[in-house]
């Protein structure tokens, strides 16, 4: 075990003693001095998780969230050096974390918060003018694929995930109801927006994201009664989520 192996192992495991050879100025064992580094690691990663998952923190309470973050960061220390992406393991962690087993919607809330963060840092892309879509004859539109903005994210949930998110971020938002909900994250400009999708809209967007022709995506959406193509396309256009039309060369 190298010196930094031992140092790093003790940093993340409070039960381990400080590595040998670390001292105070008088040559005595470092003791609490080593704990400064332990605290810095835990506190800075906890702060990153607090910044990244504000709704989870609100749902769980600050104290519980901090304690849970301490468990999470030891099980899943960051794999990359960009803290803007830290926490992708959170949904899976929550699914298997017994103290929150009674809150089965939390993994999807975490997924939505991750999606917002990814959207915030995604590449810029000029949105398509709404007129470009309307100008295309229906048969060509059906056969076309839509180029989608890098910021677009879809979170499909068995829980009212968008409503839960809004109820915990928007003053005056109604309390979430019950039932499955698909949430769309778009970024018109620089601020990500979260919307609850209508019937069939999640399947429609999922098909578009998978590269389906607009006609096939329409069919996927229309499999659910009440699907409204105009509303679905309008929402994507308003969110700056469509950046181009790709037609197979005639």
């Amino acid at each position: 075990m190298s010196a930094q192996d031992a140092f790093a192992a003790a940093l993340l495991d409070p039960a381990r003693p400080a590595p040998a050879g670390l001292t105070d100025p008088a040559g005595r064992p470092a003791g609490a001095r080593f704990d400064v580094y332990r605290n810095n690691v835990a506190a800075s990663l906890t702060a990153a998780l607090e910044t990244g998952f504000p709704v989870l923190r609100r749902l769980l309470g600050a104290e519980f969230f901090a304690a849970m973050a301490g468990v999470f960061l030891r099980a899943h220390p960051p794999r990359g050096r960009l803290l803007m992406t830290y926490g992708t393991a959170m949904p899976g962690f929550l699914e298997a974390f017994p103290p929150v087993a009674h809150l089965p919607y939390l993994p999807d809330v975490a997924q939505l918060e991750l999606a917002r963060r990814q959207a915030y840092h995604a590449a810029d892309a000029a949105p398509l003018d709404a007129g470009a879509l309307a100008a295309l004859p229906p048969d060509r539109l059906t056969a076309a694929r839509l180029r989608l903005a890098p910021a677009l994210r879809l979170v499909r949930s068995d829980w009212p995930v968008a409503a839960i998110w809004h109820a915990n971020t928007t003053p005056g938002a109604p309390p979430p109801g019950t039932g499955a909900q698909d949430a769309l994250v778009t970024r018109p400009g620089y601020d990500p927006e979260v919307a609850a999708l209508g019937p069939g809209e999640g399947a429609f967007v999922a098909a578009l994201m998978a590269g389906a022709h607009l006609g096939a995506a329409h069919e996927a959406g229309a499999a659910t009664p009440g699907f409204d193509l105009t509303q679905a396309l309008g929402r994507l256009l308003a969110g700056g989520a469509i950046t181009g039309i790709e037609e197979e060369s005639a």
Binding site: Q4, D5, F7, A8, L11, Y37, V41, S44, R79, G80
Partner: peptide, 17 residues
Amino acid sequence: AWSTHDGHFLNDLLPLP
């Protein structure tokens, strides 16, 4: 300082001998 070990980013400025 060092801040990464064994593929994990520890997000602190750790000391060196």
